[in-house]
Deep mutational scan, measured.
Amino acid sequence: TDCSIVSFLARLGCSSCLDYFTTQGLTTIYQIEHYSMDDLASLKIPEQFRHAIWKGILDHRQLHEF
C-alpha cells in the first residue's frame, strides 16, 4: 500500500493539512507513526483535524505491530 502522507491524509479526509507535514520534510507515514497528540499540535495542525489524524496514526500502528 501507499505509505505517503499524501494518501494517508486523503484517506482520512484531511488533505488540507498536507502543508503542515511537508514544510517539516515529512513525506511518509513511517516518519510520523510514533507521533503523539502533542507532536501534531506542535505542527500547528488545526484541532478539528488533529483527532482524525491521531486516530489514523493509531490505526496504522495497530496494522503494523507484529
Rank of each mutant, 00 (worst) to 15 (best):
H34Y: 07
F49V: 06
V6A: 15
L9Q: 00
E65Q: 15
C17K: 02
Y35P: 00
D39Y: 02
L18R: 08
M37V: 13
F49D: 12
L9G: 02
R11C: 05
L26E: 02
I29R: 03
S16E: 11
L26D: 02
D38M: 15
Q48W: 04
I29K: 03
Y30L: 10
C3H: 07
A41W: 06
G13Y: 03
A41S: 10
D19L: 07
S16I: 07
G25A: 06
S7A: 15
D19Y: 06
L63K: 14
S36G: 12
S42D: 15
W54I: 12
V6S: 15
R50Y: 04
S15G: 09
A52N: 07
E47P: 14
E47L: 12
F21Q: 00
D38W: 07
C17T: 07
D38R: 11
F21V: 00
R50A: 07
I53R: 00
T27V: 10
A41M: 07
D2G: 06
T23M: 14
I45S: 00
K55Q: 11
Q31Y: 01
Y20G: 03
Q62G: 12
T23S: 11
D2K: 06
V6L: 14
D2Q: 05
E33D: 12
I29G: 01
F21G: 00
K44V: 04
M37L: 13
Y35E: 01
H34I: 03
D39V: 03
L40R: 00
K44A: 11
V6N: 11
K55C: 10
G25R: 06
L18E: 13
Q48K: 13
D38I: 08
L9S: 01
D19V: 07
L40N: 01
P46T: 02
G56T: 02
R11A: 09
Q62S: 12
D38G: 12
A10S: 06
A41K: 15
A41D: 11
E33N: 06
E33H: 10
Y20R: 10
P46F: 01
L9K: 00
K44I: 03
D2R: 04
E47C: 08
I32V: 11
I57Y: 00
T23D: 12
Q48G: 12
K44T: 09
H34L: 06
C14D: 02
H51S: 15
S7C: 12
E33K: 06
L40D: 01
E47R: 09
L26C: 04
L58R: 15
S4C: 04
K55F: 04
F49K: 12
I5F: 03
H60E: 07
I5D: 00
S16R: 07
I32E: 00
I53L: 06
Q31V: 01
A41V: 14
S42N: 15
L58W: 10
D39T: 05
I53C: 02
I45A: 01
T23N: 14
D2V: 04
D38C: 07
T1M: 10
D39I: 02
Q24S: 11
H51C: 11
D2F: 04
D39K: 07
T23L: 11
K55Y: 07
I32A: 02
Q48S: 11
I45R: 00
E33L: 09
C3F: 13
I57N: 01
D39N: 07
L9C: 03
W54H: 03
L9D: 02
G25N: 10
Y30H: 15
P46W: 00
L26I: 13
L63R: 10
L43W: 03
K44F: 07
K44Y: 07
I32Y: 00
Q62I: 05
L58I: 14
S4H: 06
E47D: 15
R61P: 12
K55M: 10
R11F: 03
R61F: 11
P46N: 03
E47F: 05
L12S: 05
R11T: 12
T27W: 05
T22P: 01
I57M: 06
F49N: 09
S15K: 11
S7Y: 09
S4K: 08
I45M: 05
H34V: 03
C3P: 10
L63W: 09
K44P: 04
T27S: 12
T1D: 11
G25I: 00
S4M: 09
E65N: 12
L12K: 05
T28I: 04
A41Y: 06
G13M: 04
F8P: 00
C3K: 08
C17P: 01
E65C: 12
K44S: 13
L40P: 01
K55E: 13
I5L: 14
T22K: 13
C17D: 00
T23A: 12
S36A: 09
L26P: 02
S15F: 05
C17A: 08
L58D: 13
L18H: 05
K55D: 08
T28S: 11
